[in-house]
Nucleic acid binder design. Structure first.
Length: 594
RNA sequence: GGGGGUGUAGCUCAGUUGGUUAGAGCGAUCGCCUGUCACGCGAUAGGUCGAGGGUUCGAGUCCCUUCACUCCCGCCA
């Protein structure tokens, strides 16, 4: 028997009435009636109400004890009267009459309350994370995280995947995010980099003949944080398979997701078979490559209508002539919405940095006409054209944006979310998964105007590899895919290019010479030259999966010890200064101390 | 790097048009209370109004600068 307890705080019930028991835990709450004291004792498993009265010599001491003190109590289980049963807790039919108690861990005055559902400032939560983590919701989130990871691990094992660890200290890679660097003591002036993902290693695992690999892999990227993006580090379910095509990866991952989400959430899956949307179509219909498919709104391109002579919307017409696009969103049956509904959206769009959203409502009097600030610019025939293109009906409204393709995609994507939410079109009780496929191999870098890899440089281009037209690189598609759920990008993956010659040609397009490639990716390119199997994989983000399952909007709510937005750990005081001696050993000196 | 929001007691927040000694709830301390489960009642302590500067007879409130936290843009193959 344990020195500290005979039962956990969720275990006692009517069957145990009369038993002498010991419990250990935190004092969650006290209710002091002067001559009678209730103590809610909490541990990881639950809460048990303990009770003591003034007849007991321990009464005065317990009355004074701080909340969150860790104590052990010895006592007897007694039945509660019918009126005093508490159905909110598992042990609500009984209580423990305290005989003796012992303080196991004292508690100073609390900097933040543990027993409350109230939200409080992030800063104090992070500094006292160990207290914050005692609170119900986040405590449960972290337990959920453990269970999900354990479930995934088990599923992967069942599917024949082998779990391997790959190095944490590795080399800096020229592509992608900013690296975290670690100075090498034994190699002065040189640095390791923490892996942004075990990308090259997992491919090497395939070349090494292990066939199916996975890992709950820590990934490190020195980029700025967002609500759904931890600064610094996060976890991926990294996986890779040999002798597979895109569909084979899809089948494995889709099953895994369906099983995981059905097991850990009450929400319905909108699609058991995830729809596949080509990148190009997604950009057109949703303005983004991470569409929220819970939202029924769709974006239409009606640029051509603005070339008509009977459309007199001169601002847009002028822009269209200089290459701009007009995209629109149709809202069903909104003709009776108040003017403020439309104006709010226009105002909101301006706050997003767009020039606003024009709108009109289609009505029918003698004939079809458009009402609203820009309605007068449209003829009957032009409206009919728009109605055909967009399947809009009388009574529907149309929100219009005009601009360069990227601008118009961005604002319509945001507007689609905004209008969907405003109109209550989004079902919060479903998960809508989809695959985004057929990513382009390359894109134009907006800053440098040069061509660059749009995703992973190791992806396999689509089509006959002997007939790829390297003269038109922007037209080359890759076997590159993402999983998106409810507008959140959960994973991206690819079938890899395992053919060195092809790799050189693809890198040549972005200006890497053969020797550049040999140098920067020596491990990879060398390995691919010694008999590499065709292979591919994907890497779903664990933290975001847990976010969805826990119904949280912020990744810190599912991360045990997160850093703040400035990548500082307020509890451990990281990052911190180091001694001169440490710097000296590493051959480093700090240039500007501030 | 840029934009928005927030910053008042240990915690969560209120504080009107610039006007007396800056308030409430929770927590803390002290007292009362034997059936609560957000127990109740009474009292006490607790404040660099994030910091600095300015306007003013007078600033928590207005202006400027700055710091911290947060959300977004950039960034994240």
């Amino acid at each position: 028997m344990s020195k500290f307890r005979t039962h956990k705080c969720n275990e006692l019930n009517k069957q145990k009435i009369g038993d002498k028991v010991s419990l250990s835990g935190w004092i969650n709450k006290k209710r002091d009636h002067g001559n009678l004291l209730f103590i809610d004792l909490r541990d990881n498993y639950g809460i048990t109400q303990c009770i003591i009265d003034k007849e007991n010599s321990n009464f005065k001491k317990l009355e004074k004890i701080q909340l969150e003190t860790v104590i052990k109590i010895d006592g007897k289980v007694v039945e509660r009267t019918n009126e005093s049963i508490n159905n909110d807790i598992e042990t609500g039919e009984i209580e423990v009459v305290i005989k003796n108690f012992q303080v196991l861990g004292e508690c100073k005055e609390l900097p933040l309350p543990v027993f409350t559902d109230r939200e409080y400032a992030e800063e104090i939560r992070l500094k006292y994370r160990f207290l914050d983590l005692r609170r119900k919701k986040i405590h449960e989130n972290i337990i959920l995280r453990s269970k999900v990871i354990s479930f995934i691990r088990n599923e992967m094992n069942k599917l024949g995947f082998l779990e391997f660890q790959t190095p944490i200290l590795t080399s800096s890679s020229p592509e992608g995010a900013r690296d975290f660097l670690v100075p090498s003591r034994l190699n002065p002036g040189k640095f390791y980099a923490l892996p942004q993902a075990p990308q090259q290693f997992k491919q090497l695992v395939m070349v090494s003949g292990f066939d199916k690999y996975f890992q709950i892999a820590p990934c490190f990227r020195d980029e700025d944080a967002r609500a759904d993006r931890s600064p610094g580090e996060f976890y991926q379910l990294d996986l890779e398979m040999s002798f597979v095509e895109q569909e084979d990866v899809f089948n494995v991952v889709e099953k895994l997701f369906v099983n995981t989400f059905k097991k850990f959430s009450k929400k319905e899956l909108l699609f058991n078979k995830f729809p596949k949307i080509a990148f190009k179509d997604s950009m057109l219909k949703y303005g983004t490559d991470k569409p929220d498919l819970r939202n029924p709104l769709v974006i239409y391109d009606i640029t051509e209508t603005f070339l008509r002579d009977d459309v007199s919307f001169e601002i847009f017409k002028k822009l269209v002539k200089s290459g701009s696009k007009v995209r629109c969103i149709v809202t069903k049956n909104t003709k009776d919405k108040p003017r403020s509904f439309f104006d709010n959206i226009d105002k909101w769009a301006k706050e997003q940095g767009a020039s606003g959203l024009a709108y009109f409502t289609i009505e029918k009097e003698k004939e079809i006409l458009a009402k609203g600030p820009v309605g007068k610019f449209f003829s009957k025939d032009s409206l009919n054209e728009i109605m055909t293109k967009t399947e809009a009906k009388v009574g529907d409204s149309i929100f219009l944006a005009c601009g360069k393709v990227e601008e118009v995609e961005k604002i319509t994507a945001l507007a689609r979310d905004k209008i969907g939410k405003d109109l209550g079109l989004i079902d919060e009780n479903v998960f809508a998964f989809c695959w985004i496929v057929d990513y382009p191999m390359y894109e134009i870098d907006n800053q440098t105007k040069k061509i660059k890899f749009s995703h992973n440089p190791f992806s396999m281009p689509q089509g006959d590899i002997n007939k790829i037209n390297f003269e038109k690189p922007l037209e080359i598609l890759a076997y590159q895919y993402d999983i998106v759920c409810n507008g959140i990008e959960l994973s991206s993956g690819a079938i890899r290019n395992h053919i060195p010659d092809l790799m050189y040609k693809l890198f040549d397009v972005v200006g890497y010479s053969r020797s550049d490639v040999d140098q920067k990716f020596s491990g990879m390119i060398n390995a691919l030259s010694y008999g590499a199997p065709p292979h591919g994989g994907i890497a779903p983000g664990i933290d975001r999966i847990i976010m969805l399952l826990a119904n949280e909007k912020n990744i810190r709510e599912v991360t045990m010890f997160p850093m703040n937005q400035n990548a500082q750990d307020l509890m451990m005081n990281a990052p911190s200064s180091v001694s001169e001696n440490q710097l000296k050993e590493l051959n480093l000196s700090i240039k500007n101390k501030k």
